[in-house]
Design a protein around this nucleic acid. Structure first.
Length: 891
DNA sequence: CATATCACG
DNA sequence: ACGTACGTGATATGC
């Protein structure tokens, strides 16, 4: 049967460009959009097996729609040159694939596709349109489906009539009416003011089309809505016509001209080589078998001699003496573990790789092989690894020492693109190595079906991982150098990973008995509360279910709905607080939620995580998760232990020193983010305030309200504090108004007054957004980079979000850089001074230690000194230190 | 497996 | 006009 695939070239190129980091070849050619386009094509050819295929592009400056509405697409900013220079390469790519491309002067790709799908439909051909543009959903019919790109470009979500019906409750044709009513900012289609998706869908479910809606304005509820509709009749009709894809463009092309019979592997190979798409080479049909990992050990797969040879050895007892010579320096090393949590996961084996050498070494043999253990521990034998912290801690639990990590590809990949959290070796290999790696899921299976595969499969998988590291490191080094990130890796993230390894391994002692006792108290209180709530509700229900709770509050008790979520009325704490005056049940529910959270997350959750061997909690500090450079903590998360409310704060009483007579000591930075802001914005007023050692929120209140220090009321200080927070987050009047429960206008006035006094801050906010628009990314003081692909997006929301991120990331990220530096220095100092104190936790602006009594005085000054001087700024950094018998006493 | 909620900085 | 504060992770529900 025929299958016709039509690709929206401009849309896919754009998606690919913004979804992937700005890659370049060794001679500086940008290729990210080409790479994205390529992976999409390979996937489509593989999975859809088209018999006919073509790619349509926009052409010419004057689109026919201009005659109708001059603002059409006026909101679109220029295509960045980094993208436009890739279009010729994409054309070459299509030629290499032998895929026909088509453009028509004065028409958009949409219209070409619209026209051809209609023709194909009339011939009863199965047709699929590939695009990132939701507008295209209007083309769906019995024979035509539309595949929208999701998460980048290689994942596609196919829409047929049924999916559109399910998602919108509309027929494909009505997508046009939807756009006509709600408009589309990215295409500058105005729609009807005040009508968004929700309202538009409601109207269409009732009346079907824009015209019918306009015919029944009088029946529609809502005075404002009626007014808006009445005042915009013509605009609505015009919007609909703008959204309508043309289906009769003069496309001079017969369907049989786009028949597809595959590509010439040689041509494609040549093109991939030129683009340096090494990892894609094995995917070319006819060049490589890419058989999965069925090859026997020691055998190269079909790609040998042509593009990517892969052969490796499996160590056995007889060969160890001989293999010892192969333990050289540097080497790629991968430690394979059976499970994600390396505090528990058994080590399965090791992959080792160097030039023309790859080896799989099972764990049992490693334990017997003295030369290997020595090599592992030898500082002078350089290892290239992927997640050295994982390796170090995992090996430590097994009595093995790892030293000499010279390059950590995991951290490097994170620095190159922090947007993709938790870099995956297989993905990184795709970009930087010649050898391909199967996904762990395909090798081990997932969920309950997860199991170790047979040796042949397992060994090749692991050997490939080590090989990928070996091959990728030089290219990654080059890229780091180019982006001025080498130092951040070697001086900061690399050393930090070893500090974190030690903290995780050390763990923090938890007083389990204390927790159990608190749990019993909570059980009692929660039982009582449950009964009280059932009484007040008049019937029992599941209080933890927002759905059931909503039914009780809003149906049965008829309380007003103040806010809605996607699925129903909201029952979040801020809403409930406003409902409290209406009914006594509300306060009980709030208390129930609060105590329930403590029980499930902090009592039961923490007790489950106590390690049976050590009696301690060993968290995982993830060093490559956040977009800003902060750490995160999981299994369990020790960075969100309650503190704000007294009941919850008691949980901290269970965090105790692991040795008798020791103390918990905590040191936290005071206002580090605002101090960082003072430094990077060079705002004289803010700098002055910090240099004088003033309370910053009081000072802000004085300046914003124009009063003297003793005239600042607690209300004024509270509002000033909220403004300061807002500033750090990338302020918006709406956000501030929500936070302070004031009107947007009042919030806007606060912000104006703030910027009138802190002009340097205002200037910084404007400059950083401008800079982000120029470069496409922002950086911290230590050059950590965050890409902001949406900074030039036509969609207001996405763009605004990116703008706030541009303002916030250098602040939050620099603060993260600073405490990371402090941690490295701190660990050095502890070692140099022979102190027994141990660093246990980091909570973004706080470090927690356990300290023997006789070191308390030393530590108080040492910790403060190290933290305050980690990175000298134009304003002083201030650190408060507290200690006591439990974490709760460090206040 | 997505959503709502809530804990932290 | 648009509709949000920035950055995380864990738990319970319910499809």
């Amino acid at each position: 049967m025929s299958h016709f695939v039509l690709i929206d070239g401009n849309s896919i190129a754009n998606r690919a460009f913004y979804a992937l980091p700005l890659l370049s070849t060794s001679n500086g050619l940008h290729t990210n959009a080409v790479l994205g386009f390529t992976t999409m094509l390979l996937k489509v050819l593989e999975e859809m097996k088209p018999t006919h295929i073509m790619v349509a592009f926009d052409a010419g400056k004057v689109v026919f729609r201009h005659s109708e509405f001059t603002d059409y697409k006026a909101g679109r900013s220029k295509t960045p040159t980094e993208l436009s220079e890739q279009f010729p390469l994409i054309r070459e790519l299509l030629d290499a694939f032998s895929i026909k491309r088509f453009e028509l002067e004065g028409y958009e790709a949409d219209d070409i596709i619209g026209t051809l799908t209609l023709r194909a439909d009339q011939n009863n051909w199965k047709t699929t349109v590939i695009t990132g543009d939701k507008d295209m959903l209007q083309l769906v019919s019995d024979h035509v489906s539309v595949a929208l790109t999701r998460k980048g470009v290689s994942e596609l979500e196919v829409y047929t009539t049924a999916e559109i019906e399910q998602k919108y409750g509309l027929k494909p044709q009505q997508i046009i009416d939807l756009k006509g009513l709600m408009g589309d900012a990215s295409d500058n289609i105005p729609g009807v003011p005040g009508v968004g998706e929700k309202t538009a869908l409601k109207l269409l479910h009732q009346y079907g089309t824009v015209e019918e809606v306009l015919n029944h304005i009088d029946e529609i509820s809502g005075k404002k809505l009626q007014e808006n509709l009445r005042g915009n009749v013509e605009q609505a009709k015009m919007s609909k016509s703008l959204a309508t894809i043309l289906r009769e463009a003069p496309v001079d092309l017969e369907l049989d001209q786009v028949g597809y019979s595959g590509y010439d592997p040689g041509k494609l190979l040549e093109f991939f080589k030129r683009m340096e798409f090494k990892s894609l080479i094995p995917k070319i049909k006819g060049i490589s078998a890419t058989s999965g990992y069925n090859a026997e050990a020691g055998e190269a797969d079909e790609t040998a001699g042509k593009s990517v040879p892969f052969s490796y050895l499996i160590a056995d007892r007889g060969s160890l003496a001989e293999l010892a010579e192969k333990l050289t320096s540097p080497m790629g090393l991968f430690v394979e573990m059976d499970g994600d949590n390396y505090h528990h996961a058994p080590i399965v084996g090791f992959g080792l790789a160097a030039e023309d050498f790859a080896l799989y070494l099972p764990m049992e043999l490693a334990l017997e092989w003295e030369a290997f253990r020595q090599w592992l521990a030898d500082e002078t034998k350089q290892k290239w690894v992927f997640d050295g912290k994982r390796d170090t801690v995992g090996l430590a639990w097994n009595g093995l020492q790892l030293n000499g990590i010279q390059f950590d590809m995991y951290l490097a990949t994170y620095l190159l693109n922090a947007t993709e959290s938790n870099p995956i070796l297989a993905d990184a290999a795709l970009q930087y190595a010649a050898v391909a790696i199967a996904s762990d899921e395909s090798v081990y299976g997932k969920g309950a079906k997860r199991e170790l595969p047979e040796l042949a499969t397992l060994s090749e998988h692991v050997a490939r991982k080590a090989t990928a590291i070996w091959q990728a490191v030089p290219a990654i080094r080059r890229e780091l150098e180019q982006q001025e990130l080498s130092e951040l890796l070697t001086k900061l993230e690399g050393p930090l990973s070893l500090v974190l390894a030690e903290m995780e391994r050390t763990g923090v002692k938890l007083d389990a008995e204390r927790l159990v006792q608190m749990g019993q108290e909570l059980d009692r209180k929660l039982d009582e509360l449950t009964n009280k709530i059932y009484d007040l509700a008049g019937e029992p229900f599941n209080i933890n279910s927002p759905k059931q709770l909503g039914e009780i509050l809003f149906d049965r008790l008829q309380l007003p709905v103040l806010k809605k979520t996607k699925t129903g009325p909201s029952t979040s704490a801020d809403v409930l607080e406003k409902l409290a005056p209406y009914h006594p049940i509300i306060d009980e529910i709030l208390l129930f939620r609060q105590l329930g959270k403590l029980r499930s997350t902090y009592i039961e959750g923490l007790l489950k995580e106590i390690n049976s061997k050590t009696g301690k909690i060993h968290t995982l500090f993830n060093q490559a998760t956040t977009a800003t450079g902060r750490l995160s903590s999981t299994e369990p998360n020790l960075q969100n232990i309650p503190i704000r409310l007294e009941e919850g704060r008691k949980i901290r009483e269970a965090f105790v020193p692991s040795e008798a007579g020791w103390y918990m000591l905590a040191a936290d930075y005071s206002q580090i983010e605002l101090r960082v802001l003072a430094h990077i914005s060079r705002d004289q007023n803010l700098i002055d305030a910090f240099r004088k050692g003033m309370d910053i929120h009081t000072r802000t209140a004085m300046d914003v309200f124009g009063v003297s220090e003793d005239e600042v009321t607690s209300m004024m200080r509270r509002q000033a504090k909220a403004v300061n927070f807002g500033i750090v987050y990338g302020i918006s009047d709406y956000g501030l108004s929500q936070n302070l429960n004031i009107t947007r206008k009042e919030a806007a006035e606060f912000i104006d007054r703030y910027f009138a006094v802190f002009q340097g801050v205002k200037q910084y906010m404007e400059d950083i957004v401008e800079q982000a628009k120029q470069d496409g990314y922002v950086t911290t003081l230590l050059q950590r980079r965050r890409y902001l692909p949406d900074i030039r997006n036509k969609n207001f929301n996405l763009r605004s979000f990116a703008e706030r991120t541009a303002m916030n990331t250098p602040i939050q990220g620099t603060a993260a850089d600073i405490i990371k530096l402090a941690m490295i220095r701190m660990q050095e100092s502890l070692r140099q001074q022979g102190l027994r104190s141990r660093m246990l936790l980091q909570v973004h602006d706080e470090l927690v230690f356990e300290v023997p009594q006789d070191e308390l005085e030393t530590m108080k000054t040492l910790v403060a000194d190290v933290m305050e001087n980690a990175l000298p700024l134009d304003v002083p950094l201030k650190v408060d230190v507290h200690y006591g018998p439990t974490w709760n006493d460090t206040k």
